[in-house]
């Protein structure tokens, strides 16, 4: 049981920032970021390359912010200017992801990388041996979530971001310049993605081939969460993590995607808008 909990939570720790990022960008810009997995992988590999000390991690975070902004300016702004909407923009983010993969390969090579754990050694939890690093990233993920909550729920910047994501036109009537907040969302999203990638790289190895898997995990988590708010994103990440861990530990290893597919299908059959989308609270006709 402890083993299951620790594993599931550490998987959720990797997924939560990534899912939160996908859902944030979707709410503010209306785009599902298909480049997400590639950005996360870049984060993991870059951090491994730039050293596992704090400097490397900070540098990676900065890189994440820059990549988020670049993705907005390269994949979204020009396409929108030419009237592209919906799936077209999603394709565009995929294009950006591939471009980034090229950069990753050229700078760091195509092999698998691991980030040296920030905390070495292991602990014994009720008879289950686990690395301290796993516990650390669970803790860090909670910190990330708290920071996100603090920024989005308690600051004026966050409330304006919600305003833009709820109704960009109405927000502009309030005097809020939507473009700046979209850029902000992409920057935050880039940072969250590389955080997820770094977490993954400290407990497993990361290479460019992992990107599609991370992408699907994040998309499924986001869809299950309902793409409506941060709580939904966390819920979606947890459900995805629990589903994959259950299939790994109690059914058979190597059927994570199948487990995800089953959960996703059931959720979408029962609630086509996602599990955590509470339409009633803020929406009333």
């Amino acid at each position: 049981m402890v083993a299951f909990l620790v594993t599931a939570l550490s998987v959720a720790a990797v997924l939560t920032p990534i899912v939160a990022s996908v859902s944030l960008v979707y709410r503010v810009s209306g785009v599902v970021n298909f480049g997400g997995g590639f950005i996360a992988v870049f984060g993991g590999i870059a951090c491994a390359h730039w050293g596992s000390g704090w400097a490397g991690a900070v540098l990676t975070l900065v890189a994440g912010a820059v990549i988020g902004a670049l993705c907005y300016f390269i994949a979204i702004v020009p396409a929108r200017a030419f009237g592209v909407r919906g799936i077209g923009l999603t394709l565009s983010t995929l294009g950006f992801g591939l471009l980034l993969t090229f950069v990753t390969r050229t700078w760091f090579g195509g092999t698998a990388f691991t980030v040296r754990p920030w905390l070495a050694g292991s602990v014994d939890l009720a008879g289950f041996q686990t690395s301290q690093q796993r516990l650390l990233i669970i803790g860090l993920a909670i910190v990330v979530v708290l920071v996100l909550f603090a920024v989005f729920d308690w600051t004026l910047v966050g409330r304006r971001l919600s305003a833009v994501s709820y109704d960009a036109e109405l927000a502009s009537v309030y005097g809020i310049r939507g473009g700046r907040y979209q850029l902000l969302a992409w920057v935050v999203s880039g940072v969250c993605l590389v955080i997820g990638g770094m977490f993954e790289a400290t407990i497993a190895s990361v290479d460019v081939e992992v990107a599609p898997r991370l992408l699907v995990l994040s998309l499924v988590g986001a869809v299950i969460g309902g793409l409506t708010n941060l709580t939904g994103a966390i819920g979606g990440a947890l459900v995805a993590a629990v589903a994959t861990t259950i299939s790994d530990q109690f059914v058979a290893t190597g059927f994570q995607m199948t487990a995800l597919l089953i959960v996703l299908s059931v959720v979408l059959l029962v609630r086509p808008n996602g599990l955590f989308s509470f339409r009633g609270t803020a929406e009333r006709l």
Partner: peptide, 13 residues
């Protein structure tokens, strides 16, 4: 802005 409270609506304006 329906997802925001009355006070928040005023503050961000």
């Amino acid at each position: 802005l329906r997802p925001l409270t009355v006070r928040e609506n005023l503050r961000i304006a």
